[in-house]
Design a protein around this nucleic acid. Structure first.
Lengths: 231, 231
DNA sequence: TTTACATAGTGTAAAAAATACACATTATAT
DNA sequence: ATATAATGTGTATTTTTTACACTATGTAAA
């Protein structure tokens, strides 16, 4: 391939699948690329890792530069290393997923010029993405599903105070299947890490639901032993 | 740090945790390094990824060169990217675990000069390893435990024909806890992917146990749906 | 103030899965 | 014949999961 663009021999990058939950839908934040290769395509936010930063730090930095977002839950899930996955050279990429409370981040402006803009896309109708990013996305959601059952992932995607219905909708969105309301509530409450608040939902034109909080301390007290085994 | 050794700016490597099961114990194959850094230390087999090979291919190649072993089950589990994890320069390493039937591979001779020798170590008494390899090992066994419950990992570690007691010992070794014999057998058999053979164990000085085979085809027929969800 | 609406919130019975538990059987070696 | 060492087996109890439908409540509109 001859593009006239600079080539590099080999590098590592981070790519990031940023999940959010809004309007009952699971969404992913994509960027519209402003540079070749794949200029004008949608892609996952990502960039090269510098030599003096750990991959964790790089993930945090890159995400910040491309989305102006900080302090979200991030986790590595797979590394992609096909030789030809990047058209300009050998780039091995470590993929992370990030979970954010979309609320208040509906409009996310990239800081660098590398991305024209960003926008949230429902996971069920993602466009064709640059590089091998569709594959990376597929892997991410499979990992997310699996981890949902043994890590308190869901609460990273919800506002601090949430209703049980919201929680259920989120589980349904991630697992991509309907759950039974009564069984879901029974089970969630039986875990003992949800704190029922003396507060109700506001601004709805029907009976307001009770609000709950996720009690992290209790969670880790309860699952301490298991969590050591797993990862 | 000034060692007189060549430095490199940045590179990726593969490190590999090779599990085997022998004499009722879970073991890991370590190499004794023949080169600095960490010359004469025990370490996980690993080496740099070449520019023209995928990380999968690199993992296969490196393992072959260092252990003379091929065609084992390998799976990526985590990527380690601390800046200072390698004393000679920036090396990001993709860690794999590999599962082999130890039988017939009790003595493994390295092909390259890079390793002096290799030897199997029980997982419970690993020596101090070079680099961050103790951490890599810890992560590997946690992943292995988790995956044991949804992937047919155990059968990669046993001979083709095995007894239920052997299978149970292996589960106990990986999970690091005792299991109930009757319940274990009931459950394993209920899955329906074990094929009972018309053959018995040989060479034991007590009642010989029935031999079983893992029926891969059946396994995938049964767990098709689940396996799609997971990964 | 009544009514329509939309979602919240609740319990039970049945089925399935997990657990706890101990002894008779059988092949080999002496 | 006997000792030995591990194999192979069943049941009752508890826990977890599943299936299933109606009443309660707050808001908004008539």
């Amino acid at each position: 391939m001859e593009t006239g663009l600079p080539k590099f021999d080999s590098a590592f990058s981070i790519d990031c699948v940023i999940f959010g939950f809004d309007a009952g839908e699971l969404k992913v934040l994509l960027i519209e690329r402003n540079e070749d290769p794949f200029k004008d395509w949608w892609a996952l936010p990502g960039n090269l890792v510098e030599n003096d930063e750990s991959i964790e730090d790089a993930a945090t930095r890159i995400l910040y530069e491309l989305t102006n977002l900080r302090d979200m839950h991030m986790e590595q899930f797979h590394t992609f290393g096909e030789v030809k996955r990047h058209p300009l050279g050998r780039v091995i990429t470590v993929a992370y997923y990030a979970l954010i409370r979309i609320l208040g981040h509906k409009e996310v402006k990239p800081i660098t010029q590398y991305a024209k803009k960003t926008s949230w896309h429902p996971v069920n109708t993602l466009p064709k993405l640059g590089f091998d990013h569709n594959e990376i996305f597929e892997t991410s959601i499979q990992k997310l599903r699996r981890r949902l059952s043994y890590q308190p992932i869901a609460f990273e995607l919800l506002p601090e105070k949430f209703t049980l219905t919201q929680l259920q909708l989120l589980y349904e969105a991630i697992l991509n299947k309907k759950l039974d309301k009564r069984n879901f509530r029974k089970k969630m409450i039986s875990y003992g890490f949800l704190k029922e608040l003396d507060e109700k939902q506001k601004g709805v034109s029907y009976r307001a639901a009770k609000l709950y909080k996720f009690d992290k301390r209790k969670y880790f007290k309860i699952f301490q032993n298991d969590m050591n085994l797993e990862s």
